[in-house]
């Protein structure tokens, strides 16, 4: 047994190239070629990297990203692997051979993917809205809500309470409908600027704002300006905030 290999990414190339001690825990990173594909790896024991210490974990994850970034700079297109992907050897097969076998077996598929991602990158787009601002606008503009709000003012205390609940329910319903409308609108506008798009789970935010949509987008790096302009327009709308991140290796599309 010769230990195992931690894999950062797959890229094109047919030479064994040393990238220096840039890996996790300063391990030496190098490429394992097979035909015209390379795996970017470092040597490691046959066990996953885990730590109770979050800071250690964070350092590792950032190192992982750093290596993929360097590989992207050096080789162009890469297919990134998730953190902690380790390939082991078997009794009579060294781990290098296992990697080569995999590259060989999956050659067509990997090649196709590399072609698909050529000159492209992944970008994250998250659109967040402020329910307070949107709700206020709804109260001002929605006739049904306006009516109910007017009625409420003339009611006795007990009835007013009931009306308030009615109003809250109606507002909630309208907010949901509004969210759906905006979602579709934004999705269509963004889709026009990208090659591929994936809807990700929205996430809870710390403040009282809500994430309306969370997208991963694949596009030509040069085209990020066009997407940026579209997002700028959304960002300028009252009550909306856009987070635009990237370029990332195409984690979401491999």
């Amino acid at each position: 047994m010769d230990g195992a290999r931690y894999i950062y990414c797959i890229t094109g190339g047919n030479e064994k190239i040393a990238l220096g001690n840039i890996g996790i825990d300063d391990n030496e990173v190098y490429t394992i070629p097979c035909q015209d594909l390379c795996a970017v790896v470092h040597n490691c024991p046959a066990e996953p990297y885990t730590s109770e210490d979050n800071e250690v974990m964070q350092t590792w994850v950032m190192k992982h990203q750093k290596v993929v970034d360097i590989a992207m700079e050096k080789f162009g297109t890469v297919l990134p692997l998730g953190f902690d992907t380790i390939i082991k050897g078997e009794e009579d097969i060294p781990s290098d051979e296992n990697i080569k076998k995999w590259l060989n077996d999956d050659y067509e598929n990997l090649r196709q993917k590399l072609a698909k991602f050529k000159d492209r990158a992944e970008y994250g787009v998250q659109i967040i809205w402020d329910p307070k601002v949107i709700g206020k606008k709804l109260i001002e503009n929605n006739q049904e809500i306006k009516n109910l709000n007017e009625e409420l003012k003339s009611k006795s205390k007990g009835l007013a309470y009931m009306y308030k609940q009615k109003l809250e329910n109606l507002l909630k319903k309208e907010m949901e409908a509004e969210a759906e409308r905006y979602f579709k609108d934004f999705y269509e506008r963004i889709k026009r600027c990208v090659d591929d798009i994936k809807v990700e789970k929205t996430k809870k935010l710390d403040d009282d704002k809500q994430m309306l949509l969370n997208l991963s987008c694949l596009l030509f790096k040069e085209k990020s300006k066009v997407l940026g302009e579209e997002l700028e327009a959304i960002n300028n709308m009252e009550g909306f905030l856009v987070r635009f991140t990237g370029p990332w290796p195409p984690y979401s599309f491999v």
Partner: peptide
């Protein structure tokens, strides 16, 4: 980024 590195990437 963490979401991507931890949950995604090429699957073997």
């Amino acid at each position: 980024l963490l979401d991507r590195i931890l949950d995604k990437g090429l699957v073997i």
